[in-house]
């Protein structure tokens, strides 16, 4: 009995030793400095950028990078709990600033897009923006903490139909692409997504009147972990302004920042103000949905 117990103690202490050695190795700064320059950048990008980034990677001037795509709020949480990312591209300012509250780094607007209603193709008849609030219309939206969900709410509140549409929502999705997929499956009638999400998808786009629509701005945050990769980070960020990058953005329906969007600036700052409201407010409202 005593013998076995002693053996257990020995093994346990061995185990602790292994564990502590393992931890120590990971923390050595030496490992970071010796990283080869050709190592691909790790880009945490909003789910809505999955396709455009795949094409962006194919441009000859783009440095090699790997993408982790999810809702911006998920990515921000991952980064804040220690995920190693070089660049975070958020679909709104709120999530970018959430990361910046705890991590230092420059933030830069990359490009913008607009919202649009995605309608299932099999759905018979015409569909107008106002039909989102109509009876027996099944709607899927990104959850309120997801940038696309927050933008959608601004759009619907401006149009004065948020309460009606909320009653039609059958699911609050964790990212905009999950919402889009449910429309594409034909499981719901419509959803609000980014204009740039529609490319190559089997859904119909129904435009949102200009007076209600918002400008969604993507922000890139350069994270401290990218130290030593300055050059590749710069090439990744500047590449969007190259002729190839601009053509790519145009094809998807993104707009470069600073180009002609003057008339929207008032409105977009308006929506940002909404997005910067404390998130408790978003939650308490949303919880009332039954």
């Amino acid at each position: 009995m005593g013998n076995r117990f002693r053996a257990r103690i020995t093994l346990f202490s061995l185990l602790c030793l292994f564990a502590s050695v393992g931890c120590g190795m990971g923390d050595r700064p030496r490992a970071k400095a010796e990283r080869p320059l050709s190592e691909p950048l790790v880009v945490f990008a909003a789910a809505s950028l999955s396709d455009v980034l795949r094409e962006y990677a194919a441009l000859p001037s783009t440095p090699p990078f790997k993408v982790n795509a999810a809702g911006s709020q998920t990515l921000a949480s991952q980064i804040l709990s220690g995920a190693n990312a070089d660049i975070f591209v958020s679909a709104n300012r709120l999530q970018a600033e959430r990361v910046l509250r705890e991590r230092k780094g420059p933030m830069k607007p990359l490009f913008t897009t607009k919202m649009v209603v995605a309608v299932a193709r099999g759905r018979a008849g015409e569909f107008h923006f106002g039909d989102l609030g109509g009876s027996s219309c099944k709607v899927v939206l990104a959850a309120p903490e997801v940038p696309a969900g927050a933008y959608a709410r601004v759009v619907l509140e401006r149009a004065g139909i948020f309460e009606k549409v909320r009653k039609n929502v059958v699911s609050w999705e964790p990212d905009v692409r999950a919402a889009l997929a449910k429309v594409e499956f034909g499981e719901v009638d419509a959803g609000i997504v980014y204009r740039s999400d529609l490319r190559g998808r089997k859904v119909r786009g129904v435009s949102i009147p200009d007076s209600f629509n918002v400008t969604a701005t993507y922000y890139a945050v350069v994270l401290p972990g990218s130290a030593g990769k300055h050059d590749t980070v710069r090439r990744f960020l500047e590449g969007w302004r190259s002729p190839g990058g601009r053509a790519l953005l145009e094809r998807y329906g993104f707009e470069p920042v600073g180009g002609g969007g003057r008339a929207d600036s008032h409105r977009s700052s308006d929506s940002e103000a909404f997005l910067l409201r404390p998130r408790g407010a978003l939650f308490s409202r949303e919880r009332n949905v039954v």
């Binding site: 709020q73 804040l80 709990s81 609050w172 939650f283 949905v289 039954v290």
Partner: peptide, 23 residues
């Protein structure tokens, strides 16, 4: 089943959603 509070949002879905804003 999607994620709708009071109808299909079960505890694991609520936990996942909470993780995105408040660990």
């Amino acid at each position: 089943a999607g994620n709708l509070p009071g109808r299909t949002r079960t505890l694991p879905l609520a936990a996942y959603q909470a993780l995105q804003t408040s660990p």
